[in-house]
Every structure is written in C-alpha cells, then in structure tokens.
C-alpha cells in the first residue's frame, strides 16, 4: 500500500514537477515530521485498541497538555499567564505537560476499569472536557512568548526522533515483555485473561495512562514546535491517529496489531499530505481522496489477511 502510493506520487511528480518525489532527503524528513505528533498518539491508541478499547481523547489532551506546558515555559513579560512562574528550567514545563497527559489517561483508565462504561464513552467525555479545560485555562487566549530552550525541543527533526524512539520502545515492550503479553491477552479475551491471573483492571489503567502520556508528549512537542500554546491545537488528531493504527492493520475488535504497522500507517498519512502538495492537487479534492484511501487501505489489508489464512 505504502509502496503503491509512493510510486504513484513519484510518477505524478515527474510529470508535474519534473523532479523526483522520493529522492530528496529533506522532503522525506518533512513527510514524517508533519505526522510525527499524530504518530505519537497513534502509538498510544494502538495499544488501547489492542486491549479492545478506543481513545477519542488524544487530540484534546494534546491541547490541554500544550496549554499547561506552554504556560510554564514563558519568558518574563506582559503576556505571561503566571507572572511569578516565568523563565523556569525547561524540565518543569516538559514534566507538567507529560504529567497532564498521563493524568488524563489515568482518569480514562479508571473510568473504564472501575465503572465498566464503554471506552468510547469514557474517552468521549474526556475529549469534550479536556478541550473545555484547555479553553478555560486561559479563557481561550493563546500562550506565547515561550523560552528558546523550550521551543528548541520542537525544532528540526526532533519530533521525528521522538516518534522513532517511542515506536521502538513500545515495539519492544509489546513484543518481548509481560506488558505486551497482557495487552494482547486482554484484547483477545478479557475473561480468559482474568482467569489466567492477569490483573485486568490494573493493566487497563496502565495502558490508558501510557496513551495519555504519549498525548502529553504530543502536546509538549506541538507547543514547542509552534512556539505557542493554543486551545485549538490537536483538533481531530485522535481520528488521524486511529486511522493510522487501522491502516497499519490494527483490528478494532482488539488483540491484533503491531507498532510497526502503525508506523507505516502514520507515514502513509504523511506521504499523502506531502504528495498532494507536491503535485499541486486541488485543495477542494484532497480530503475526498484521503478518505477513500483510508478505507481502501483497510479493505486491501483485510483482503490480504484472508488470503493468508485461507
């Protein structure tokens, strides 16, 4: 799928721009750079989906973490949210952003594990409330004038580096550790997992907290990259993240999926955005095609799966 799309843009690229789409290191970087924050969320939501759940709150948690982190990363000046908390060492805003994300995820996990409401509802509530909190935090005002040490976190290829590190870490955790074994087991059959001695409640809370932490990291990276915290950040990122996971072969009914697949799904989204711009595709048509490609990717994936099993 990825190869097909890339080849298509390569051919179109030659006919429209007269140069190669693919053989340009800078463009390859930009392709991944623009989706690396969605990629972080996708790694989180993949794990949640593996347990048979869903996380709709990640985009809003990006906004909330971005606001909290940015408000603690300001330089002194008339636009400081907390005039007494300016020019702080960079670890404080980063830690606050991560903690905000993890806390939101922890609340999601506890809601789901303790009240047994569907993850769709619990995280829908968090999606609405976290966005509301992000707006309430500064009454909708953007938070800017961030310190240079903070904005440096989001500069250049660093978001890509974070994405790759996170992917590697969770690839290993899911494949080779008990953390992964439990995650897949709960998704495949929660009842069986419980009987075989897995503390399902505790593990679910952990997985949702991890997803929240990754959203928090996404919020830190977004605000650092834009040198500003805004309540409208991360709008509908959760859907792109879920799309990336599903394009990458993660099954929405749980138990099946891989981080490597999610990485490929994320890159497909990035390739499409860059490719459309590269060939100067009409902006009015881009989203129509994007939707079709997302569905098509999953159809092809399912079809190939059936072939293998038959």
């Amino acid at each position: 799928m990825l190869v097909g799309i890339v080849v298509l843009f390569e051919l179109l690229g030659w006919s429209v721009r007269g140069t190669s789409f693919l053989f340009n290191g800078q463009r390859l970087l930009v392709m991944v750079l623009q989706v690396s924050i969605i990629g972080l969320l996708a790694i989180g939501v993949t794990q949640v989906i593996l347990t048979g759940g869903i996380d709709l709150s990640s985009g809003s948690v990006v906004a909330l973490s971005a606001m909290v982190a940015a408000s603690l990363a300001q330089t002194a000046g008339p636009r400081a949210v907390f005039p007494s908390l300016v020019d702080l060492p960079v670890v404080i805003p980063v830690a606050a952003g991560l903690a905000t994300g993890a806390l939101a995820g922890w609340v999601n996990g506890n809601l789901i594990a303790l009240t047994r409401i569907p993850p769709f509802i619990a995280t829908l509530g968090m999606m609405v409330s976290a966005r509301g909190l992000a707006r309430y935090y500064t009454r909708g005002q953007p938070v800017s004038m961030l310190s240079e040490t903070y904005t440096r976190i989001g500069e250049g290829a660093l978001p890509v580096v974070m994405f790759v590190i996170a992917a590697a870490v969770f690839h290993v955790l899911l494949r080779y550790t008990r953390y992964g074994k439990y995650t897949y087991a709960i998704g495949a059959n929660a009842q069986a997992a419980r009987i075989s001695g897995i503390h399902v409640t505790r593990h679910l809370v952990l997985v949702y907290t991890v997803a929240g932490l990754l959203s928090g990291l996404g919020g830190v990276m977004t605000s650092a990259r834009a040198a500003s915290g805004q309540a409208g950040m991360g709008m509908s990122y959760e859907l792109d993240a879920i799309a990336a996971a599903v394009i990458g072969g993660t099954s929405l009914s749980g138990g099946i999926g891989r981080i490597t697949g999610t990485v490929i799904g994320t890159v497909i989204l990035g390739v499409m955005t860059s490719g459309f711009t590269f060939i100067g595709f009409d902006a009015y048509i881009q989203d129509i095609v994007k939707g079709v490609v997302i569905v098509l990717a999953v159809v092809i994936d399912r079809y190939r799966h059936r072939e293998v099993h038959a």
Partner: peptide
C-alpha cells in the same frame, strides 16, 4: 495555492512541503 486551515502548525508544514518541492 494550498489550504492550511488558519493554523500555525499547518502553515509550517505547508511551507516545508513547498520548500522541499523546490
């Protein structure tokens, strides 16, 4: 001529794409 939805990050990504498209 492309869309960046009035957003800073989208403008940043779009400009990156234009620059790398030469």
């Amino acid at each position: 001529k492309q869309v960046a939805n009035f957003q800073r990050e989208r403008g940043l990504d779009l400009m990156n794409n234009w620059l790398t498209a030469g």
